[in-house]
């Protein structure tokens, strides 16, 4: 029964998501990587909302096939309850006509071969952020190169006016960026990055992150601890800058 229902549910939700995206045409920011996706995603949304850009973060995804459609439609998972799933299935068609945020920031979880292709068949992101690529989920791949190829599928399928944001402190991502044809902005402690994290100062209440680009130096105060929050802060700045300079509807609203 469950084996039959799951594919049906997947097709149903996928269809509704495609319809919702066709109606509302949101700009999708995909955050992919083996870890720290959630933290980067939250930082991006926080920064966009602060600048009055209508954005929403998708809930933390538990699985790729059903999690992403649910998060785009902002619907709850029924987990293992048929009753809860029935409620979700019933309300889903109504949800697609509700107002959708201008920007959706979604986690793209890649844990198996073919995940990228499947995710791209549901939504096509304008921006892809790659946080880290590690050996997590290696059991589902032949080797690390196959994991990198999965991410390659994501970054090579992005529009010419899109953006890839990549952490080049990570060796696997350094290999990956060689295949990127769309505009690319790199970040990291690596001095070759476009946005170099020059220093991270730990204070009692958080961290001060100094970011250097070719033309300026910027200090960001983050009320969290850990290197990944420094990364998230840089990512959020890069994404914000993209919207402020490229997205016309955003420019209109923020009068930049």
């Amino acid at each position: 029964m469950k084996c039959l229902l799951r594919p049906l549910l997947r097709i149903y939700l996928k269809t509704l998501v495609k319809l919702a995206i066709f109606i509302h045409r949101p700009v999708v920011v995909a955050v992919a990587g083996s870890m720290n996706k959630h933290i980067a995603k939250e930082a991006i949304v926080k920064e966009l909302l602060y600048c009055k850009i209508d954005a929403r973060a998708g809930r933390r995804g538990f699985n790729t096939d059903i999690g992403l459609p649910l998060t785009v439609l902002n619907l709850p998972s029924g987990f293992n309850s048929y009753k809860d799933w029935r409620r979700t299935v019933i309300i889903a068609p109504r949800v697609i006509f509700k107002k959708m945020e201008r920007v959706l920031v979604l986690e793209f979880g890649i844990s198996e071969v073919g995940d990228s292709q499947y995710l791209l068949s549901i939504v096509k992101p304008q921006i892809i952020v790659i946080t880290e690529i590690t050996a997590r989920y290696i059991e589902n791949f032949k080797n690390t190169d196959q994991i990198i190829r999965e991410y390659e599928c994501l970054v090579t399928n992005i529009n010419e006016d899109g953006l890839v944001v990549a952490n080049i402190d990570n060796l696997n991502i350094r290999k990956l960026v060689l295949s990127v044809k769309a505009p690319l902005i790199t970040f990291g402690f690596n001095v070759k990055a476009d946005n170099v994290i020059d220093s991270v100062g730990v204070r009692t209440t958080g961290q001060s992150v100094i970011i250097k680009t070719s033309d300026k130096s910027q200090c960001l105060n983050v009320d969290r601890f850990g290197k990944h929050h420094a990364y998230a802060a840089v990512i959020s700045q890069i994404v914000l800058k993209y919207f402020l300079s490229n997205d016309k509807s955003v420019q209109k609203k923020t009068k930049v």
């Binding site: 720290n36 959630h38 933390r60 590690t134 969290r224 601890f225 850990g226 290197k227 990944h228």
Partner: peptide
């Protein structure tokens, strides 16, 4: 497990406790 510690960090943050999953 990194994924568990990461999720613990996220859960703690909802309760106003900010700790680095990688080191704390």
């Amino acid at each position: 497990l990194p994924e568990l510690r990461e999720l613990i960090e996220i859960t703690l943050a909802k309760e106003n406790m900010y700790y680095d999953w990688q080191k704390e």
